[in-house]
Amino acid sequence: MIEVSGLHKSFGRNTVLKGIDLVLPAGNVTAVLGPNGSGKTTLLKSILGMVLPDKGDIRVLGRSIHHQWEYRQAIGYLPQIARFPENLTVQELIRMVMDLRRQRADEGPLLALFDLEHFLKKRLRYLSGGTRQKINVMLAFLFDHQIMILDEPTAGLDPLAVLHLKELIRNERQKGKTICLTTHILPLVDDIADRVVYLLEGNVYFEGTIGQLKEKYKGGNTESAIGRMLQPEKYD
């Protein structure tokens, strides 16, 4: 579980988060939605400790993360863009992440799932963007993390890999994990998310289950519900 309270963050004169209060419960997939620049990535990066909040508190698994780093042992993160040390091979990268996390895991099933076995000995600089993204996904799901943070997880993946990814996310939810993702692809939200957080100009505009969202804004799916939420005059 992740609890965010009164989170403020500005970059220079640009105020990105204006007092965010949120709870991301365990055993749920929460989709953080919002237009570009609404603060989604800043929120995720604050949870990861990459962005340091100006005000407010974030608690991961019940403990405040202020000036902490050990808590990241419990978090798996899938960044938006996958870039790795160019001259390492895929195998060396996997060993490196295990080594740095001080955790062992069996990469075999995930390598097979994403058809990555024959890339193991290749240097990362020679791999295509899509293949790197698959490796990125594999690294995020390799360990048994309590919390998964996925920033635009489907970006750059081929349709089959997206199917596998959704399967992985569902499996993790079944295990009772806290999963938080950002995306602009609303059908994906309908497909796998339980809850929606809609950020607008640094505030939480809506927070609740998908059912509550559809009911409140009378949409058949997430897409139309959000359309009605943002531009009621146009969709009524």
Partner: peptide
């Protein structure tokens, strides 16, 4: 500059800055 994104990956791991 070349390894900015890789820094992000490292920063998300349980390692001190």
């Amino acid at each position: 500059y070349n390894s900015k994104e890789f820094n992000e990956l490292l920063l998300a791991l349980p390692i001190r800055r």
